[in-house]
Write a protein that binds this DNA or RNA. Structure first.
Lengths: 207, 207, 207, 207
DNA sequence: TATGAATGAGGGTTCATTCAT
DNA sequence: CATGAATGAACCCTCATTCAT
């Protein structure tokens, strides 16, 4: 907008991906126009094609980028924490999930994947492999450590995946997709974590 | 395919809605073509407009229909059961949710709503009011009854909504959207229900 | 132009092909716009796609149509004539070729093929097989008959193809592509035919 | 590819024209991209515009260059030869035409002109004036000389143009555009020349 | 000179919607 | 009611051309 032919080559792809995430999330893949993405990124439609060869590729790289960023954060931290205090680690995972959902930049990608998975099987498979599987594996591993340390009961992995991630996912949807407002996010996160933990903790309090 | 133009007119709208649900679920709203929906319903594109005035209206009536059907089933039964045995009622709600998810005809509509909610705020609001709110109210009511009967602990409604519906929703997505296979569905449903119940039951077993 | 939604289904494809031939010939394949073809055919751009699935297919069917029409006319007549009087048959072939070139509807297709052959190898191959080969075969056969009857000398097929068709093709190009005007077409055709015949006739006039 | 930006600037226009000829011939004017021409010439798209102000001008200069080169070779030689031995001169013209056609660099330009003439009337006119007319004039002059020397019959110029150039042109098209293979090019050229000559020679052989 | 990022107009194609039959 | 031909707006993508560096 400033001058006619700006040149900011190095930053362009990221800027375009950011713009694309915003537009895709708001309108879905099919209803998003390259024009709008380009404008939001500060250039014109034709220029987007200098960086991404099609709308579809733009979409896929968007998800890929998110996947890469996400994996690093997640699995490592959880692994480290689990060794010290599994219960606290699980509590943190749940609370962090709930809290992060408040950031649209983080929750946008998963919602986009959910919305478009049916039309992009390859992308869904990639997301499943790079994000979902990694997250699930981290949780299962966390529970195993806790079980060995005598903190957690034995729970089937398929149960754990659903019971632990489910509330977080639902929170994202209720909050962003359906606009339910929350007053005290921190307290809610705490309460959810504690509630879920009941299903995994060995009841030492007996006796 | 057998005979053309030989169906009872009165059944047409339902047939079109069925066809639309199938196509919308598979491809999403934007990528679905009226041609395909019409063909699946056994008539031609132009004829669909005799029953629905636009693609968008077709979509909205689809969700409306689902909402009506679903509401009846849910709220009533839960209410009745809660009076007798709140714990068993909650267990049933969860198990039923997991089991029903296996039927694509039932899980298709919610997934479709999740996918398209961003583009159809009105529809999302309607779904929220007619389905989500009703379901949440039923659960909250169920928990209150249980609390009064001394069976359940006091749990914040926002926590309960997430912890109870979350695993079911996640199960739907993992199963249909990401294709994770389950071996013993019934056992899984049982285990999930029991796990969730831990967070709500008063620990009578103490002492 | 008359009413808004005319319906002339049966004639449409032919009309479109006619319009396409005119536009393609005038501007070449790439520079021809579907808009213009449609307008010339009396409908709108989108409607063309009801009959031809792409610009390329439209082009190919155009050539296919010409090929089919042409083959019938050519080979049969020549075969019949050759049996009676080979020399007269050859003279007629040449003269007819020159005379037909004056009709743009006939000369347009070959010129279009020449112009676009490089970009459409499949189409070129098809044209070669359906038109060129057939024409060449007819000539070679004609010469053989003449040879057996003692009217024609033995001439290599590759020589005959070039010497007989060359002047006709060149006449088409000079006339249409480069706009050279001819005063007395009939006389010209006669003279060309006689000139060419010299190369094939056995010189009975000797002695 | 070895060093960048290391060529003599003075050679650039020629290099670009060479590249353009290759690309235009292969794909036609409209389907040729400046990118591809530039790459083939060893520079980038933008740089081509330092030498030619538009794609169209590039195309026209291409044809102009060819015209100039060609005219020199042709007319002079033929004129000289005609004075000595008109029959041998005509034979040589025909044979040379056939033989030269084997060189794609030589036959490319005429084919390109044929393909694009419809879209570039100015270029076609220029080509007609600079190449076709010159060639035709040379032939007509040759025949006149032969006629005066008692070697050739009187033949109308319009007939001669078609009968002499036609086989050569047709040979180019059959060979390059339609890919017909020739085994013994020299023999073919000889035979074609002799065949054509029949139409022009005075039949001295008649006693 | 040379680059290559950026532009912007243009065209092929799709598809929801309309309408004469 | 039903058809399907026709429309026309929209949108993706291409590419000749420009311009700051």
């Amino acid at each position: 907008m400033t001058k006619k032919n700006q040149r900011r080559p190095s930053a362009r792809p990221e800027e375009i991906l950011d713009a694309a995430l915003a537009v895709f999330t708001a309108k879905g893949f099919a209803a998003s126009r390259m024009d709008e993405i380009a404008e939001k990124a500060g250039l014109t439609k034709g220029s987007v094609y200098l960086y991404f060869k099609s709308k579809e590729q733009l979409f896929e790289e968007l998800i890929t980028r998110f996947s890469k960023n996400f994996v690093g954060v997640m699995a490592e931290r959880v692994g480290v924490m689990a060794e010290k205090d599994p219960e606290e680690a699980l509590r943190t995972v749940i609370k962090t999930g709930i809290m992060m959902a408040a950031d649209p930049a983080i929750s946008a990608a998963p919602r986009l994947v959910l919305a478009e998975a049916a039309r992009f099987p390859d992308m869904a498979a990639m997301y499943h492999k790079k994000v979902i599987s990694v997250g699930q594996a981290a949780i299962v591993s966390l529970l195993q450590v806790g079980e060995q340390k005598g903190v957690f009961r034995a729970v089937q992995p398929d149960v754990a995946k659903r019971v632990i991630f489910g509330p977080v996912l639902t929170h994202i949807l209720l909050t962003h997709t359906f606009g339910q407002k929350i007053q005290d996010l921190e307290t809610l996160a705490d309460s959810i974590a504690e509630n879920i933990l009941c299903g995994f903790r060995i009841k030492k309090d007996i006796s």
